[in-house]
Write a protein that binds this DNA or RNA. Structure first.
Length: 293
DNA sequence: TACCAGGAGAGCG
DNA sequence: CGCTCTCATGGT
């Protein structure tokens, strides 16, 4: 396989592509026969995987594949991450059940916009809403012959020009003004997302939470999935449920306290642990979870 | 019909 | 601080 072209294969151990693309950290991947089709940083790409390899096909020849290898985090060593975790039964059970699940490194703006829209919605609805947003306000990207049309994620500059009513028409409800305010802040240069990864975690979180509609949970999603803060720990209803069930005897605990517990308990890669707990609790019935733990 | 969905924010005791 | 209510919409 030539290094420059439409196609590329990478050898990689313990990479569960299906879990990684469908576990709720990214919302634009669509199953396609034995693979997945999506748009990453404005490029159409089809991914497939087998035992020990991941393959990509693009619409346009690629000279430099770093936009994709960085997105897929191919160089990350999962064993080192799990070795940094505590050896408690609930986490080991999630680790065993979700073998090969990876965190992606996504575009921060797409991440911020997507999770603003995720508030209080089911994942399939989030996917559908984001698909409508891209089809209406993204730019058409080249696709291979015979493939259905695809769009880039709309830029903050583009969304900032829209009236709120245009966004509400897509079914965003109360999230529409939040997305609009975020688009304007980024387009204005008032919020520099590219700078966030160089700030201390607490500062970066504080900065994001100045936006209307961005609280601790959405801020942590952007920091973990888009800025590379491995310690960020988004607490949503599912993770809260999993933590209460496994570490607090089923008692109800405020989200802030759960995040503090997680930070102290799971350590420098707490965010990775969060995704395993999230995926596990969402894909496995409670009785079966307790059995394997 | 009632309830829930990868929340946030205001109001209240 | 911790609880409750509201925000808008679509799905079981």
């Amino acid at each position: 396989m030539s290094r420059a072209g439409h196609c590329r294969v990478w050898p990689v151990q313990d990479y569960d592509l299906a879990s990684t693309l469908s576990c709720g950290q990214a919302f634009r991947w669509v199953p396609d026969r034995d693979g997945w089709v999506g748009v990453v940083r404005g490029r159409w790409v089809r991914l497939s995987a087998g035992n020990g390899w991941v393959q990509a096909r693009t619409a346009v020849p690629q000279r430099d594949w770093r936009w994709l290898t960085d997105y897929l985090q191919l160089e990350v060593n999962l064993a080192e991450i799990s070795a940094s975790w505590p050896q408690d039964p609930p986490l080991r059970a999630a680790w065993a059940a979700c073998r090969g699940l990876r965190l992606l490194r996504q575009d921060p703006w797409e991440c911020l916009a997507s999770f603003l829209l995720s508030a209080c919605k089911a994942i399939p609805q989030i996917q559908a809403l984001i698909a409508r947003l891209c089809a209406c306000y993204g730019e058409a990207v080249p696709v291979p012959p015979g493939q259905s049309a695809a769009w880039s994620f709309p830029s903050p500059e583009r969304l900032a020009t829209l009236p709120e009513s245009s966004l509400r028409r897509l079914g965003m409800g109360f999230r529409a003004p939040h997305l609009l305010a975020a688009a304007r802040a980024v387009a204005d240069g008032q919020l520099d997302l590219a700078r966030l990864p160089r700030l201390p975690l607490a500062k970066a979180r504080e900065r994001l939470m100045q936006l209307p509609g961005v609280g601790p949970k959405i801020a942590d999603c952007v920091l973990l999935f888009g800025c590379g803060f491995q310690r960020a720990f988004p607490v949503d209803v599912w993770v809260a449920r999993a933590l209460r069930e496994s570490y607090f005897g089923g008692r109800r605990v405020p989200a802030g306290r759960l995040r503090e517990f997680a930070d102290a308990h799971f350590g420098p890669h707490a965010g990775y642990a969060q995704q395993y707990l999230f995926h596990h609790v969402r894909t496995m019935p409670a009785a079966q979870r307790r059995l394997s733990a």
